[in-house]
Design a protein around this nucleic acid. Structure first.
Lengths: 209, 209
DNA sequence: GATAACTAGACGACTGGTCTAATATAAAAA
DNA sequence: TTTTTATATTAGACCAGTCGTCTAGTTATC
């Protein structure tokens, strides 16, 4: 870690921008967008103000970049969980949920889902944010729908409900479960939701992890 | 509406405090707690700064008062919907969900549930807020659980899942549904969740309203 | 050496929350 | 009825922090 007494040498451009986004993502996930000042991010990242405005045209531009970066990272995570064709689809979903539960516990209930958090905070006020968040939610829903369709087609569960609706139910319930987890400081709501989704909604035992 | 050119006569104390809470509740529901300054509330309520600090020891104190007031109003609403013993329990739940859908459309998708919003924004950062919000969520869950237990006892639906778990599933899903509704600017997610809850989770047709 | 990329951080306007002296009103006492 | 005291309420100063802009300066590249 660089000493605050000696200013770190300038990093390669891509690295500085990436670092701002990484640090910003972490702080915004915990404190929210409107309660996160640029200076806090700059201080934590060790980057001067002039650099910030060199890479981002405004705080809003920065926020959108944070969202895009998070979505890309989530896609990667979904690739390695829902996209793991070596596992049965319902096992993949189970593993995805388990890793989110582990993350919630690991951060001591102070983050949750950045997209959900920002959706709640900003969707009613900023059209650019709203549209970006909406498209991410829709993309996530499609991935879960594809996975659920595959499970149904394999005969892993039976349901008259189309997979897209089931995927949306899973997503909405999961967002609510992470909210209750944060507010109660317990992963119990997430665990309970996962169990209910498999057993009650899909009518199957919870898959082994 | 009072002219801004002439300062309004001082209102009785209780009335001033109530007005601050009413105005604050509305603005905080739309903009969030951290993006709502005291001055915006004072301006809208026509109340001077010194009065604010006479009634509230701090902005945080004010926020807690807003939450308590909202919870009390919600209890009243739950009394008149879930508590309407003249209607079958599942019809009551249906009506509660319908009124929330109507509210979301009426506010043009800019509010949602204040408790959910503040839970997402503040629960990870402020212990006083978190505890208050947690107790409200738990109380709401119990009311839905009681209603679902009554429905089950009447034979309105059959499920091996205990009503408390069903109530939590309903609540978490509903919070997620309102989030998706805000982000997509459509009540479709809320309608879809309601349908899925009755048909897939409870295994009954959606009750007539 | 010229140019492009990046940085340092001052600056200005504005907003934030808090606080306290001052004022207005109500109640009690003379 | 007047005066005094207590309570209720207000005015706005204060200080810290915000965001965004700007430009001189530094570093890296060609």
């Amino acid at each position: 870690m660089m000493s605050t007494l000696s200013r770190p040498q300038a990093k390669p451009g891509n690295e500085t921008r990436t670092e701002l986004i990484r640090v910003g993502s972490d702080i915004i996930a915990r404190r929210g967008f409107n309660n996160t000042g640029i200076n806090v991010v700059l201080k934590e990242a060790g980057v001067p103000k002039g650099s910030f405005y060199y890479y981002f045209s405004s705080k809003e531009d920065f926020g959108l970049a944070v969202i895009d970066d998070f979505a890309a990272a989530s896609d990667a995570r979904l690739d390695s969980t829902l996209g793991d064709s070596g596992q049965p689809p319902l096992v993949r979903i189970r593993r995805y949920l388990d890793s989110a539960i582990a993350d919630m516990a690991a951060c001591d209930f102070c983050r949750g889902c950045l997209i959900g958090n920002l959706g709640q905070e900003l969707a009613g006020q900023n059209e650019a944010f709203r549209e970006r968040l909406d498209s991410i939610f829709s993309a996530w829903q499609r991935r879960f729908a594809d996975c659920l369709a595959e499970a149904r087609d394999r005969g892993d569960f039976e349901s008259p409900v189309d997979p897209d609706a089931l995927a949306q139910l899973l997503q909405m319930g999961w967002q609510g479960a992470t909210l209750r987890a944060k507010v109660s400081k317990s992963v119990a709501p997430m665990e309970r939701f996962a169990t209910l989704f498999f057993e009650t909604v899909l009518g199957v035992p919870v898959p082994a992890a």
